[in-house]
């Protein structure tokens, strides 16, 4: 469990100071894959480094497994860190050591016996699918393989928390998929809290169950991925959502609309249940309106369907209002828009 309570972090550089975090609070429970998304400079890197105290907060509390980190001595903190694994964008493997020795390092640091180390490292090599690479050096591995070594190393000490610092940002899309699948498997296999920062919405969409959107050192929106994706309130969130869910009308349709003149347009969002119900059919049967579907799209997030639609309604204003209310009653999020 990770909890940040009203955390501030200010960097002082001579006279000037930079506020990297300005009152951030979040809570990630065991079993969560909690994603923090934001553009560069939003404060994500600082945020993730607070959790293992690579950075100390200027103000506020960082609570890990129920214990505030500021109560620990330097020595105690080292032991706490041993239960927090971390993987990095650029892997940070020791070039001078083999895959085996890289994974063994956390165990060597706590002076485990050679046989214990061999057992654990063999197990981990198997888990990340690199059993045949034990004697290789990082230089001989691909990016995806390096990150697998990084993950195995992070898991060596049986951590209760795994921090992922842009873990897939240096990888190609296909490798990203396999690393995300591995992270998901970790979440399902071990009792662990995963906190990941990223600037890729696809990463959040694929494995996170909770998300926080950051901008300028604050969290502008957070919650279940489905809720945040389903109805993004903030412009930045909408921009991120747009990268994975298309909800813009093709320009050819816009041209046609312009030619026909303005009609009443509605944006609809179906989440889960309402996506599988024939609401449009109900609309047409119960109300004397003409429905023109301009755009429709469906996306799957967290095994739930998220539908997006832009429709044009033609008919008496009064009836259109009733029709809109009907859709709302059916659990559809509806918003009238002036233009698309």
């Amino acid at each position: 469990m990770i909890e940040l309570v009203d955390v501030y972090k200010t960097y002082k550089r001579g006279e000037s100071s930079i506020e990297a975090l300005r009152g951030v609070s979040l809570r990630a429970e065991k079993g969560d894959i909690f994603g923090v998304i934001g553009y560069s400079g939003a404060g994500k890197s600082t945020l993730i480094r607070l959790v293992n105290y690579l950075e100390k907060p200027t103000k506020g509390q960082v609570i890990v497994e129920g214990q505030p980190l500021d109560q620990y001595s330097v020595h105690e903190l080292r032991n706490v860190k041993k239960k927090i694994g971390m993987i990095f964008q650029h892997f940070n493997l020791l070039e001078s050591k083999t895959v085996y020795d890289n994974i063994a390092i956390p165990l060597v640091l706590v002076k485990k016996s050679k046989s214990e180390i061999r057992q654990r490292v063999t197990e981990l090599l198997d888990f990340v699918g690199l059993s045949d690479k034990a004697g290789s050096y990082p230089k001989e591995l691909s990016g995806g393989q390096k990150q697998r070594v990084g993950i195995a190393r992070a898991l060596a000490g049986n951590p209760t928390i795994l921090l992922c610092d842009e873990a897939t940002s240096a990888l190609d899309p296909q490798t990203t998929q396999s690393i995300l699948a591995l992270l998901k498997r970790i979440s399902e296999t071990y009792p662990i809290t995963i906190l990941m920062i990223t600037h890729e919405m696809a990463v959040i969409q694929q494995i996170c169950n909770k998300v926080a959107v950051m901008e300028d050192g604050i969290i502008i929106e957070q919650g279940n991925v489905l809720d945040v994706f389903g109805s993004p309130r903030h412009e930045t969130t909408r921009n991120f959502v747009r990268t994975v869910i298309r909800n813009t009308v093709p320009s050819s349709v816009i041209q046609t609309l312009k030619a026909e003149g303005q009609r009443r347009l509605f944006k609809l969002e179906f989440i889960g249940q309402s996506a599988s119900e024939p609401v449009i059919n109900g609309l047409i049967r119960n109300y004397n309106v003409q429905v023109n579907i301009l755009f429709a799209n469906m996306t799957e997030i967290q095994a739930t369907t998220l539908g997006n639609m832009i429709i044009q309604l033609q008919g008496e204003d009064r009836v259109i209002d009733q029709a809109a209310r009907f859709l709302q009653d059916q659990g559809v999020y509806i918003e009238e828009v002036d233009s698309v």
Binding site: N52, L54, L77, R78, N79, V80, K81, K82, I84, M86, F88, H90, N92, L94, E95, S96, K97, I105, P106, V108, L109, G157, L163
Partner: peptide, 28 residues
């Protein structure tokens, strides 16, 4: 690579361990 030192710190290595297990082998 400073990233190596960050990784060492994230593992809770003592200053001596950082020197012995990370700095010196990497600079060898």
């Amino acid at each position: 690579n400073p990233g190596i030192l960050e990784a060492a710190e994230s593992m809770g290595a003592t200053p001596f361990q950082v020197i012995w297990h990370f700095l010196l082998p990497e600079a060898f």
